[in-house]
Design a binder for these strands. Structure first.
Lengths: 343, 343
DNA sequence: TTGTATGCGTTATCAT
DNA sequence: ATGATAACGCATACAA
């Protein structure tokens, strides 16, 4: 069982005080080059590693970003591919700045006193900042967190706080573009399957759909709007209903790729082929989008970019950067593949 | 700017010493009920949260599990859906035991002295244990980590260390079952697209394929084995080659669902339809498997179970549980859906 | 340029 | 049952 090598050990072995070792290691100017040299060599020989706990205790900086990430009801943790890609972007970006990610898993921080609380968990670990992914913005605990002193960034959620920023895609514009694309192809009977309507992306994409329908002079039909939950199964059912309409749509804008895939599936089950009999456009451009059959026409979200933007925001706020926009919106891009065609 | 409320503050306000507060909060027996009561109430009023850093400094336990997670070359971080589901299982399991997950992102732990090193990063944060997902088992730094004093669990990797366990699916049996399923359907010309052959699941699934081919008395053909990398694109190319053979296979066992999807795609591009003209079976049973077109016949890995098993192993090891199996293998299950049929 | 001393917020070991 | 006091490993203000 190897003993942990501490800064004290280093001091002892190199014949100087711990203060000097600390300064040498941290690159302070006021230390004789040869002393520093000696210490550095010793440190690397002994494979010295500073204890983050001790350091953060004194510096009040943990270099850790907390991540609260959940997904919709009934869909256990970490299921939607979208979130993972965002997480990947976040990880890369903050990693470059020397931060690690603490993925909160425990609900009993610090051994169990007190109720479940985001703020508490964040404080317990002294995270320098928090990323919020897939939470319920109406949760009072979430609100308490963003009202607190810890810099936060919310992804795809409408949230306000003195120290929090929001990052999301331009969902409304993207949805509108989907409809315009379909219209340009010659479609006039265009339906939509929405995401969860209590989420910001859900309502924004629906709004974009409505705006475009109106702007293009198409008649808005209530029966062409079905409510889904971002996952495949909901869209499959919705599509069934849509296709059973007396005047079924010739095209569907699904507010998520997973739902677009569910729609394609429902079409196939109804003996219809995409895009010959029905056009489908998704949203997200998940990793699989180009590989499914047919490849999905979709609105690409810059998922890595979203994560990176979130990381940027956090890092800047942590560094004390004062004026920052409260909301940053990233553009989405129409990617035309094989699931859409003229009616 | 609210001041952080510390245990000292609690002591001052409640008129006792910090020692007593600590004992009261931590449920020690030797504290007068009314004193405890008073302290507890005050703590909850002030929303006191203990500082994990301070605590772990003295207890030498951080209640944090470190996670090293990368994926294959050329595929940026966190891309393969399989890993996320495993991560989800791990998160749930250890969360219940009061652990949080530290997702290592930074390559310069503690401000930059010393080279990249898994062991160093783990020690820096004093994690109680480490989960290794999607790393290169031949990396000398990985080896150093598992040779160290920190309990480790490796998922889908062959790794040995005094304090490390390995968790994986029964890949060999699963692959063999895939081939048998195809054979049972009447297929005789059965090809395979492998995963990365330097990974344990990659070789095990290939071995399972070979065993079954032999066991069933089929001729083993070199040209029926193509090498992929677990991702869709590689399988698409492989399938193209396979279909161009003078005597093309009537069925393909792809060592991952993502690859199965790539294979289906290639078939479609060649004007072939699955399963009518070509049967395809995948491996993993990713979330999308039932929803793609056609729904995938595949070998289901218990991904949540894998993560949970890893969490179990870690928690037990951390608790000091001495004798534990070095390797635990989880069964896989054939799920027959729409991508396979008689030739 | 270097050493000393103090404190960060806890837990733990003594006394009392 | 409670209070001092000493760690834990490190950074830093101040002395020297």
């Amino acid at each position: 069982m190897e003993e942990r090598v501490t800064i004290r050990e280093l001091a002892r072995r190199s014949g100087v005080s711990v203060g000097t070792v600390s300064r040498a290691l941290n690159g302070y100017a006021d230390v004789r080059p040869e002393t520093r040299e000696r210490i550095m060599r010793l440190a690397s020989e002994l494979d010295y590693t500073p204890a983050a706990a001790a350091r953060s205790l004194v510096t009040q900086r943990s270099h850790v970003i907390g991540v609260f990430m959940e997904t919709g009801e009934g869909h256990p943790d970490l299921q939607h591919p979208f979130f993972h890609e965002v997480l990947g972007g976040l990880k890369q970006r903050v990693g470059r700045e020397g931060f690690d990610l603490l993925l909160f898993a425990s609900e009993r921080p610090g051994g169990g006193y007190g109720p479940h609380s985001y703020l508490k968990r964040a404080r317990h670990h002294s995270v320098d900042g928090c990323a919020l992914i897939g939470l319920d913005p109406d949760d009072s605990e979430v609100r308490r967190l963003v009202r607190g002193e810890i810099p936060c960034v919310a992804i795809d959620m409408q949230l306000e706080g003195p120290n929090t920023e929001v990052v999301m895609s331009d969902n409304e514009a993207g949805a509108a573009e989907a409809v315009r694309h379909l219209h340009g192809l010659g479609h006039r009977r265009i339906a939509t399957i929405t995401g969860m309507i209590d989420s910001r992306p859900g309502v924004d994409r629906l709004r974009g759909y409505r705006n475009a329908i109106q702007e293009l002079g198409l008649a808005y039909r209530d029966e062409y709007v079905r409510y889904g939950d971002f996952y495949a199964e909901s869209a499959r059912e919705a599509t069934e209903k849509l296709l059973a309409l007396p005047e079924p749509p010739t095209a569907i804008f699904a507010a998520a790729d997973l739902m677009a895939i569910g729609a394609v599936r429902a079409a196939a089950e109804a003996g219809l082929s995409v895009p010959a009999d029905l056009s489908v456009v998704g949203f997200d451009d998940i990793q699989l989008a180009p590989h499914v059959n047919p490849p999905l026409t979709t609105l690409r979200q810059d998922k890595l970019g979203l994560g990176a933007a979130a990381g940027d925001a956090l890092v800047a706020r942590i560094a004390g950067d004062p004026e920052r926009p409260q909301l940053r919106t990233l553009p989405v891009e129409l990617v035309v593949r094989g699931s859409t065609a003229a009616p």
